[in-house]
């Protein structure tokens, strides 16, 4: 197997062999063993370490699509900034949406440490070649949807992201540590907003229940189909990228969230939901995956709109980037002249 050393990261200047080094098979085998031993011992892989090409590609794809999800995720909530019910809620929402932009930037930086090009990743998103989380293809039709996204969608994201703080790839793990700290603010503000609605007028209460009815199942689907149907899960686990199965994480989310819904006095829209005394777990009913696959394939209510907005924002901002670059060039020219 031909493999290559990752030395494209522009943050470093290579002391030894420079450029893209194609290595011989024997060398790669030794490297591969060292790599796997380090991962197995729960060690961390850093940008310039040797890594299998499959590991690099898996991480670039995952980190890029994670980044895309963060910046596309600004849209469903950004939709409500001008219509937030109070100044307090508006300030919180602006801060949260700004955080999502920040999360995207941490992640694009992490992808760049793997030699990926940020502009290329954006192109892949804009051309629909790379995807983002299906959850953002649902519309936010009421203020309670904003509350539900914080409480349920960010709650589910935390379940997914906390194990990633121990991911074998150092820069991704470090980015996730920052993200998780901020994510708990997101979840709490959502739960608080939901609490206000659940304890409000009958109309507010109905709005809260309606949002829970619409977001509950998509939130459970965020964890993905069972691992038996995800053939790449085993490899990701062996590489220390993935730590827990999709079903395990989903179960944790259900166990954590059902009591919160009860605290709000809301009904989880699952007639088969029951508490299993023996295992101490909440057991949910069957998930309808046909909807998930339909939304994934682009039949979601907002797929086209999300990408169109993203492309428009990028193209409309081109003159700002060009002006900033021209200004920077002028400053350099002045310095040289002086």
């Amino acid at each position: 197997m031909l493999t290559r050393t990752i030395v494209r990261y522009p943050g470093v200047r290579v002391g030894g062999a420079g450029g893209l080094a194609v290595q011989t098979a024997e060398l790669a085998t030794g490297h591969e063993q060292e790599f796997q031993e380090r991962v197995d011992a729960d060690g961390r892989i850093e940008p310039r370490d040797w890594m299998p090409e499959g590991y690099r590609k898996t991480l670039v794809r995952q980190i890029a699509q994670h980044a895309h999800s963060e910046i596309i995720g600004m849209q469903p909530e950004g939709n409500w900034i001008t219509r937030a019910p109070s100044l307090r809620r508006k300030c919180i929402l602006v801060a949260k949406v700004q955080d999502e932009a920040g999360h995207g930037l941490y992640l694009y930086s992490a992808a760049e440490t793997l030699g990926a090009d940020r502009e290329e990743l954006l192109d892949l998103l804009h051309r629909g070649r790379q995807k983002y989380s299906t959850i953002f293809n649902y519309p936010t039709t009421s203020w309670a949807d904003v509350a539900s996204i914080g409480w349920l969608v960010d709650g589910a994201a935390i379940m997914n992201q906390v194990p990633l703080t121990r991911c074998s790839y150092g820069p991704y793990a470090r980015a996730m540590t920052r993200v998780c700290k901020e994510e708990s603010f997101h979840q709490r503000q959502g739960f608080e907003a939901m609490t206000v609605l659940a304890n409000g007028t009958p109309a507010q209460r109905a709005m809260a229940q309606d949002a829970l009815d619409r977001w509950w199942w998509p939130a459970l689907m965020m964890f993905g189909p069972s691992d038996s149907e995800s053939p790449n899960s085993a490899q990701s686990m062996a590489w220390g990228i993935k730590r827990f199965s999709n079903d395990d994480l989903r179960q944790r989310f259900v166990d954590a969230t059902v009591p919160q819904a009860h605290h709000l006095g809301l009904t989880v829209p699952d007639p088969d939901l029951r508490f299993d005394e023996d295992s101490g777990h909440w057991i949910s009913g069957e998930i309808d995956w046909t909807e998930f696959y339909a939304v994934m394939k682009g039949d979601g209510p907002c797929n086209r709109e999300r990408v169109r907005n993203r492309v428009a924002a990028h193209e409309d901002g081109a003159w700002v980037r060009a002006a900033a670059a021209a200004y920077a060039d002028k400053q350099v020219a002045r310095q040289v002249a002086a």
């Binding site: 690099r56 590609k57 898996t58 670039v60 794809r61 995952q62 890029a64 699509q65 994670h66 999800s69 963060e70 995720g73 992640l107 030699g115 990926a116 090009d117 290329e120 990743l121 892949l124 070649r129 790379q130 995807k131 983002y132 989380s133 299906t134 959850i135 953002f136 969608v153 589910a156 994201a157 997914n160 992201q161 194990p163 990633l164 996730m176 993200v179 689907m221 965020m222 964890f223 993905g224 189909p225 995800s230 053939p231 790449n232 899960s233 990701s236 990228i241 993935k242 999709n246 994480l249 998930f292 994934m296």
Partner: peptide, 19 residues
């Protein structure tokens, strides 16, 4: 194939280019 580990939820990985 999906990766649920992609932070904000399941994202397809099959047929999706890395870079």
């Amino acid at each position: 194939s999906f990766s649920a580990a992609g932070g904000h939820g399941a994202i397809p990985t099959d047929g999706v280019p890395a870079d």
